[in-house]
């Protein structure tokens, strides 16, 4: 009897250990998860959400989020670069992952040295206007927008997040493509941008859907067009730029990166871990609610994706600087 009990206890212990034992390497201490942005922003929220999924589903180690927002992500990039060979440091990135090293070559950060773990999602962008504008004008379609913005000239205010940010690059595209002269006013973070539009302190924004969603549901703001390949289910009335005759698609990556020179076993471990996170019901629900797209990408595929995106951003930045 006793023997059987011990045996079953051992079996139980084995069952508990099993998911971990499958790996050649597992973390020996809590894993530091660097966020390239400040507290409360989209990236920060995503990391804290991932942290809670890992804890809730008991998927892996304790994760410690650390915000390093300095210098448009420069601080975070340098920090990760300094962690060469470290198996316990990860980073959650945005598109400043490409633009900051391009704009500040002095950092000597080469993103090809970093360890690709997994792309968790791509965030999308839409063009938004207020439904109750101060001048009483009702802007319902993208054509209305172009006409109104053209008439207003440089009095038309586009609010966005920081200069040379994703929002700025899209604004620049709209200005050059449609012959507009919108003035770009930077705010600290997408939430503040959404609020500026809702309070009529700006005429338009190119917020991520998640940032404008609350005001959209309340009927304060309206999407006119989305920079996506297909219409977004939540805003089925808003056409894509492609439908409007302009092949413009723009995403923001939400990707997990490892320190340079991370061991292969560790990289595999984290790829498996984030695959589990990706497949969890909570993350799938989150993607749906936030209108996130993008398949999971790992390893070499992810590296190829980075190189491609970096070239796209190099071109966009050159155009922005050339103006």
């Amino acid at each position: 009897m006793k023997v059987r009990m011990i045996a079953s206890l051992l079996g139980l212990a084995g069952a508990v250990m099993a998911p971990f034992a499958a790996h050649a390497w597992e973390p020996a201490k809590p894993v530091e998860f660097v966020i390239m942005a400040g507290k409360g922003g989209g990236a920060d929220k995503a990391v804290r959400f991932i942290q809670s999924i890992i804890a809730k589903e008991n998927l892996g180690p304790t994760v410690l989020p650390v915000n390093k927002p300095g210098g448009s992500g420069a601080e975070a990039l340098l920090y990760l670069k300094g962690k060469e060979g470290d198996n316990h440091t990860l980073m959650f990135t945005l598109n400043s992952f490409y633009t900051t090293p391009l704009r500040q070559p002095g950092l000597e950060v080469d993103i090809e040295t970093f360890t690709p773990i997994m792309r968790m999602a791509e965030d999308t962008f839409c063009l938004w206007v207020n439904t109750g504008r101060k001048d009483g004008e009702d802007i319902n379609t993208f054509d209305d927008f172009v006409a109104a913005a053209k008439a207003a000239g440089d009095k038309w205010i586009m609010a966005g997040t920081g200069k040379a940010s994703e929002d700025n690059l899209i604004t620049d595209f709209l200005n050059t493509t449609f012959g507009l002269d919108m003035k770009y006013v930077p705010y600290k973070g997408g939430g503040a941008v959404a609020k500026a539009l809702a309070g009529n302190n700006a005429d338009s924004t190119v917020n991520n859907p998640s940032e404008a969603q609350g005001f959209f549901v309340a009927g304060t703001v309206r999407p006119l067009a989305c920079m996506t390949p297909e219409r977004i289910g939540l805003f089925a009335d808003a056409p894509t730029m492609k439908e409007l005759g302009h092949d413009f698609v723009y995403f923001m990556q939400r990707t997990v990166v490892g320190a340079p020179g991370m061991s292969e076993e560790a990289a595999t471990y984290y790829q498996d871990l984030f695959t589990d996170v990706f497949n969890s019901g909570d993350w799938q629900e989150y993607r749906k609610k936030r209108a996130l797209v993008g398949d999971p990408l790992t390893g070499d595929d992810l590296m190829e994706y980075w190189k491609r995106e970096r070239e796209i951003h190099r071109g966009m930045l050159d155009k922005l600087a050339g103006k």
């Binding site: 929220k45 809670s52 969603q213 609350g214 005001f215 549901v217 309340a218 304060t220």
Partner: peptide, 11 residues
């Protein structure tokens, strides 16, 4: 609030 499945905002 996002983690708890709530949508902060006007609604």
């Amino acid at each position: 609030m996002v983690i708890w499945g709530l949508e902060p905002g006007p609604q």
